[in-house]
């Protein structure tokens, strides 16, 4: 394997040696990659709520409305990040079974999963999760409904800003709407492996 390392790097050097000059790193402003017209002067919470709807997700600012949504959908059994549960529990009255441990052997038992988001991106309607903030990768992925609790102050305006703030977490994931496919005849189907409903609860 080490031989392969040396061989590959030698071939790379050999391939590049004859170039009289190398292509320079272009100088640019990342603003070029921002939908300026869309975000100019907008309130980020409002814009994020609008944009997440465009990718078939949903945003709630009211816990009671979220609970009602879950009840109406028949999603009464789920997982919740233990750090969030004390604050949310009073809103989940009778009829809900919520666990703060996620048991992977019973993966199909959880209809919803509530986790904490590390942030959000207004421009694209994206929820940002990372290993430090999000209690369980599986809890945010396997249940049909994923609810990410997003704090207002953590909403970035655009992609370049969110990239700049990736930080040093080993794993950051942007979730933009429900898991989906169009593999079968180009027809959009949501909830392939991950959530069929991607929801932000803005607090």
């Amino acid at each position: 394997m080490n031989d392969d390392r040396e061989a590959i790097l030698a071939r790379v050097r050999g391939a590049l040696a004859p170039l009289r000059e190398r292509a320079p790193m272009p100088q640019y402003d990342t603003d070029l990659a921002v939908m300026r017209k869309l975000i100019a002067g907008r309130d980020l919470v409002e814009l994020f709520s609008e944009r997440i709807k465009r990718v078939n997700g949903l945003a709630f600012t009211d816990v009671a409305a979220l609970v009602e949504y879950l009840r109406t959908g028949g999603w009464t059994r789920g997982y919740c990040d233990p750090a969030l549960w004390p604050r949310l529990a009073p809103h989940f009255a009778q009829g809900f079974t919520v666990e703060t441990e996620f048991d992977r052997a019973r993966v199909d038992d959880y209809a919803f999963g509530i986790t904490r988001a590390a942030g959000a991106i207004a421009e694209s309607g994206t929820i940002v999760l990372n290993d430090a903030t999000t209690s369980r990768r599986l809890g945010a992925l396997a249940p049909w409904v994923h609810v990410a609790v997003v704090e207002r102050a953590t909403i970035f305006s655009d992609l370049p800003q969110a990239v700049a703030e990736l930080g040093d977490d080993r794993n950051v994931i942007w979730c933009t709407g429900p898991s989906k496919t169009a593999d079968v005849e180009g027809i959009l189907i949501e909830g392939v492996h991950g959530p069929g409903a991607q929801i932000a609860l803005i607090v």
Binding site: D169, N171, W174, P178
Partner: peptide, 17 residues
Amino acid sequence: ELTVYTEFITGPKAAAQ
């Protein structure tokens, strides 16, 4: 506009995860 999942991985999972 963006793929549904865009994952940034720098290494094995964090110890607490």
